[in-house]
């Protein structure tokens, strides 16, 4: 079982922007989003926790949702990026690049190159 430690701390706060990034090109439904996130190692430990996250993004109006028929079974809730979500994603992308470079800088100090 994954400890609620370092990896959890790092994921927290970043996962929601990965969700927004997945919606940049098109709308997706919940299982699709979870499936994409889980495909990358280290991003999601408990898939179910993505759903409360999606609910929060919806309440913060960073995504909008709509019900659409599926080929099989009942209709699905689709998630789409809003303009506010787009802006939040752009801001995070810039901030993340600066943060990543800064951390990389310190981690590389004293390391044989």
């Amino acid at each position: 079982m994954e400890p609620r430690g370092l990896a959890t701390q790092l994921r927290r706060g970043a996962v929601e922007y990965c969700v927004l990034a997945l919606l940049r090109d098109r709308q997706r439904y919940g299982f699709e989003l979870v499936h994409e996130l889980s495909a990358m190692d280290g991003m999601v430990t408990s898939e179910g926790t993505i759903y409360p996250l999606l609910s929060r993004l919806r309440r913060e109006e960073l995504v909008s949702t709509s019900w659409q028929e599926s080929d099989s079974g009942p209709p699905r809730r689709y998630y789409r990026l809003t303009q506010a979500g787009q802006r939040a994603l752009d801001e995070f992308s810039d901030e993340w690049a600066r943060f990543r470079d800064a951390v990389d800088h310190f981690l590389s100090i004293g390391r044989p190159s």
């Binding site: 439904y29 919940g30 299982f31 179910g48 409360p52 699905r76 809730r77």
Partner: peptide
């Protein structure tokens, strides 16, 4: 409303995952 949204979301996930 959040409770039903959560349960419905997980139900939908399971429908898809076990399709």
């Amino acid at each position: 409303d959040r409770r039903s949204e959560l349960v419905e979301g997980i139900r939908e996930h399971l429908d898809s995952a076990l399709e």
